[in-house]
Amino acid sequence: MIETFYKNIQEEQEDYFAEICLDFFNERLRVDDYRGNIPSLLGKIKSYVNAHQFTKVIIKARQEHVQLFLKNGYQPEALFKDYFNGSHAVAMTKYFTNERRKSEYWMDEDELLEKVSALPLKKDVPLLPENYHLRLAETKDADGLAKLYGEVFEIYPTPMNDSTYIKKMMNDGTLFYIVETNGQIVSAASADINYTYHNAELTDCATLPEHRKFGLMKVLIASLEEELKKRQIFCAYSIARSLSFGMNAVFHQRGYEYTGRMAKNCKIFDKWEDMNLWVNDLSQN
């Protein structure tokens, strides 16, 4: 089932190496790491785009290569501060259809971001209500997590409603924190850790609607941050739906910095979603 969503490959040629994600579900190609001859790599990327009819490419580019990507028609959309062991990565993107490039909600998202940015920082963590319990998830929780994600998200960029996929994520090192009550997982979030470059994406944030009034996501994010610091992972980032006031507010109020918006980045719920990037240096907290 995973390969119906995406396929991670290592592209090795005489003059370059790259870690590439062929993201079929989101009709895009993502380059997470690379070295060597960039023009040769870009030629290979174009062949993948043509073969799979992808409409967007995202490259986590090193700062010194931005000019070369600009020369080849790529544009910067967001800044992953400190991504490469303390050095910044720039999300360089290229679109292959006008429909994918054009966002119908950009002005609405600008307005929402202004409102979020006006909120005061608020790093204090709410207390859990009685009979709610927080803990680090284990593989035995995969079925409960899959049920949660299946209920919260009708459409999601990865198969989070599949317990087998969640178990694989855990076995590969992804951390999940959960909140449960009456034996049911009602809220969860994860940290996808890159141990090569010592960064982590805080993602897969979900709370059942009837439990959202308790600020559970703030508790989960704070817990994941503490867990990351124990592992000396200080670069934390999250990619939030640009139309979600709640999630953008959570990261802003915890001191994350907004560093860009990626147009029609993925499919969530019923449409393509623009996504805001939020970054934080946990060593400063």
Rank of each mutant, 00 (worst) to 15 (best):
Y6I: 00
K218E: 01
L127E: 13
Y83F: 15
K102V: 13
L112H: 02
Y34C: 07
G246W: 05
R231C: 00
G36A: 12
N171D: 14
R101D: 05
F25D: 04
Y83K: 08
A137K: 10
G73I: 01
I59L: 13
L224I: 15
L22W: 11
F153N: 04
D33R: 12
F176S: 11
E201S: 08
E19G: 06
L224D: 07
I155A: 12
V57I: 15
Q10G: 06
Y48N: 06
E138C: 08
R231H: 06
A118I: 01
F214I: 00
K81Q: 13
M275L: 12
W278R: 03
M1D: 08
A200I: 08
L134A: 03
N161H: 15
K147H: 07
I221T: 13
G86N: 09
D162K: 12
W272V: 02
D270K: 13
C205Q: 07
P209T: 12
G183M: 08
W106C: 05
Q75M: 01
H88A: 15
K264P: 02
L136W: 00
F54I: 02
M247R: 01
P126Y: 12
I178V: 15
L113Q: 14
A191K: 06
P159A: 01
K71W: 06
R231F: 00
L243K: 05
Q184S: 06
T93Y: 01
Q10T: 14
T93I: 05
P129A: 12
L41I: 07
L70I: 06
Q232L: 09
E11D: 11
M1I: 09
F153S: 04
N85D: 14
Q253H: 05
A191M: 07
S283C: 00
L119I: 08
I20V: 15
S283P: 00
S242W: 04
L145R: 02
V90W: 11
D82N: 15
Q284F: 04
F80M: 08
H252R: 06
I38N: 06
N285C: 05
F17G: 04
F17H: 14
R62V: 04
F251P: 04
E180G: 04
Q253E: 13
Q63D: 10
K213P: 02
R261F: 05
D108V: 02
N171F: 09
A200W: 08
H211Q: 10
V279S: 05
C21S: 05
T158F: 13
K102T: 15
T181M: 08
E130D: 10
F5E: 05
N161Y: 11
I221D: 04
H133K: 09
D270L: 07
N161G: 13
L70G: 00
K71D: 14
S40M: 11
R212I: 08
G150V: 08
E14T: 02
L79T: 10
G183S: 09
L70R: 14
D124W: 01
Q253N: 06
V179H: 01
R101M: 14
A51T: 14
R241S: 07
N194E: 11
